[in-house]
Structure formats: C-alpha cells, structure tokens
Simulated assay, not measured.
Amino acid sequence: MTAQTVLVVEDEIKIANIVQEYLEDSGFKVKVIDNGLDVVDWVKKHSVDLVLLDVMLPGKDGLQICKEVRAFSQVPIIMLTAKVEEIDRILGLELGADDYVCKPFSPRELLARVKALLRRSANHNEHLNDDIWQMDEERYQVRYQGKTVGLSLVEFAILKLLSESPGRIYSRTQLIGSIYPDNRVVSDRTVDSHIKKLRHKLAEELTDKELIHSVYGVGYKFEMLA
C-alpha cells in the first residue's frame, strides 16, 4: 500500500520536527514547509493527502492559504492554531478547513485527528463513487439507491456544493455566494428555508438517512452516514 503524504506547514521548527517524527513513525510521507508564501504553489504541483496548516506563518497566514487552496483543491485541511477564541476557529472552518487543533496539543491527539479525517474522506469518496449517489445537472435530479427526486435549481445547487466535499462545513455566507453568484442580498433565513425544504424532499422521497447536518453557530455539511 502506498504511503499517504501529509504536508506540514509550520514555522516553529521544534513543533514541525515532533509532528514529522510522529507521522513518519506511523507510515506517512511528510513534507514540511515553514513559509506561507511557498504553500499554494507546492500544493498545485504535488499530490498530497492531507495538510496540517498553522495559522500564524511568515509571508502569508494560514487562513489566507486555506482560502486559496480551497479555490482549486478539496484536500483535507487541519488548522493548527494558538488562538483559542471561538471566532478564529469558526473563521478557519468557514474558509474551508475540515478540523482544527489548538496549541499546545498532544502529538498523539493530532495523529488521531489525521487518521480519523483521512478515514472519513476515504469512506465518503468510496460512497460517492459507487454509483449509488448520482446528480443529474440537466434535470436537477439526484438518484440514490435506485430512487430519484427532483429539486429546484437552488436546492440542487446547495446539495451539489455540499455533497462534492463530504464533511466540509459551509457557512451560510459561503452557500449564498455559491448559489447566488450575482451578489444579490439574501438573508440567512432564506438559506435555512432552502435547506429545510431540501432535507424534507431527501427524507421523504430518497432516504430516511439525514444527509445534511447543521453545525451549530457555523453552517451546514453533507455526511452520508451508514
């Protein structure tokens, strides 16, 4: 089995060395970058399975890097942050991070988070590639295990965005920006209303599983749980 590659973006050499040692001892390949300016280009040119991304970096901070990477890649990202304020954690998730770990952290806990996120990502990709979940962009329909449900244009756009990145949390602002590219003024309540109708259709006509989950204080994510 080919070893998975983890990119560690951390400018504190002691922390980077400890994380690299733990990951390599667990069978991962590790690349360490200590300057924020070098990260985005490296991710574009190399295959990587997960990114551990420090928030405070020289050259370019982790939040900006996360935003830029998300413009072209859905690679799992775990933010490493010394900031403990809730707003900082939420901002990282809104920009597309999948998880965060606050410093100081236990290397064992970090390793467990890495393995859990990689398992989750692999399981969801397997589900979505098994021809049991299909989205028809011409008819605005979704098919699951032989059943089909028709959606409105907005409902389809929401579901497509969420399901393409299982487990990733999208804020209401991100959803609005994606489904209304003309920058019209739309309230959070409008998004919640679309989500409510979408959930109802999926539950009533497609599956009794809850596929779209609320993340309190942040937004929504797609989880195809067994």
Rank of each mutant, 00 (worst) to 15 (best):
residue 48 V to A: 07
residue 141 Q to F: 00
residue 214 S to Q: 14
residue 170 Y to E: 13
residue 79 M to D: 12
residue 85 E to V: 00
residue 62 G to T: 13
residue 206 L to R: 01
residue 1 M to V: 12
residue 3 A to F: 04
residue 217 G to F: 03
residue 112 A to D: 03
residue 147 K to N: 14
residue 127 H to N: 11
residue 17 N to D: 07
residue 151 L to I: 11
residue 151 L to W: 12
residue 78 I to Y: 01
residue 19 V to M: 05
residue 54 D to Y: 08
residue 32 V to L: 14
residue 74 Q to I: 02
residue 77 I to Q: 05
residue 208 D to F: 15
residue 36 G to P: 05
residue 143 R to H: 08
residue 211 L to C: 01
residue 131 D to G: 15
residue 1 M to W: 06
residue 113 R to N: 13
residue 57 L to K: 06
residue 104 P to W: 08
residue 79 M to Y: 12
residue 61 D to P: 08
residue 173 T to Q: 11
residue 92 G to D: 14
residue 33 I to E: 01
residue 43 V to N: 05
residue 123 N to S: 02
residue 166 P to W: 06
residue 167 G to K: 01
residue 1 M to Q: 09
residue 155 E to I: 09
residue 62 G to A: 14
residue 77 I to E: 00
residue 60 K to R: 15
residue 41 D to V: 15
residue 180 Y to N: 00
residue 22 Y to R: 03
residue 39 V to A: 05
residue 208 D to S: 14
residue 37 L to D: 04
residue 24 E to G: 12
residue 76 P to S: 13
residue 25 D to W: 12
residue 75 V to N: 07
residue 41 D to C: 14
residue 91 L to K: 14
residue 14 K to N: 11
residue 196 K to M: 04
residue 217 G to H: 01
residue 223 E to K: 03
residue 209 K to D: 09
residue 162 L to M: 00
residue 146 G to M: 01
residue 210 E to Q: 15
residue 73 S to Y: 11
residue 103 K to I: 01
residue 67 K to Q: 02
residue 174 Q to M: 10
residue 213 H to G: 06
residue 170 Y to D: 04
residue 69 V to N: 13
residue 64 Q to G: 05
residue 95 L to Q: 10
residue 111 L to G: 02
residue 114 V to A: 05
residue 28 F to Q: 03
residue 143 R to G: 07
residue 67 K to I: 01
residue 99 D to C: 09
residue 172 R to N: 09
residue 111 L to Q: 00
residue 27 G to M: 04
residue 88 D to Y: 09
residue 3 A to C: 02
residue 188 D to M: 15
residue 141 Q to W: 03
residue 183 N to R: 07
residue 123 N to A: 05
residue 66 C to N: 04
residue 110 L to R: 08
residue 221 K to N: 13
residue 178 S to P: 10
residue 48 V to P: 02
residue 151 L to Y: 09
residue 74 Q to N: 09
residue 216 Y to A: 13
residue 108 R to V: 07
residue 112 A to N: 06
residue 7 L to D: 08
residue 102 C to M: 03
residue 70 R to S: 04
residue 47 S to K: 08
residue 224 M to L: 13
residue 209 K to T: 04
residue 38 D to L: 06
residue 161 L to N: 04
residue 72 F to K: 12
residue 200 H to D: 14
residue 69 V to K: 12
residue 86 E to P: 04
residue 77 I to G: 04
residue 65 I to D: 05
residue 121 S to G: 04
residue 85 E to W: 09
residue 5 T to K: 05
residue 111 L to P: 00
residue 72 F to V: 10
residue 55 V to D: 06
residue 28 F to L: 08
residue 98 D to A: 02
residue 160 K to W: 00
residue 59 G to W: 14
residue 62 G to L: 14
residue 129 N to R: 06
residue 124 H to V: 00
residue 94 E to N: 07
residue 113 R to C: 02
residue 217 G to E: 12
residue 110 L to F: 10
residue 204 E to A: 10
residue 28 F to I: 09
residue 217 G to W: 06
residue 115 K to S: 09
residue 40 V to H: 00
residue 159 L to R: 04
residue 171 S to K: 01
residue 187 S to F: 14
residue 153 L to A: 13
residue 208 D to E: 14
residue 37 L to T: 08
residue 160 K to R: 03
residue 69 V to P: 11
residue 109 E to D: 09
residue 221 K to P: 09
residue 219 G to I: 02
residue 67 K to C: 10
residue 11 D to Y: 14
residue 170 Y to K: 11
residue 64 Q to E: 07
residue 13 I to E: 07
residue 189 R to Q: 11
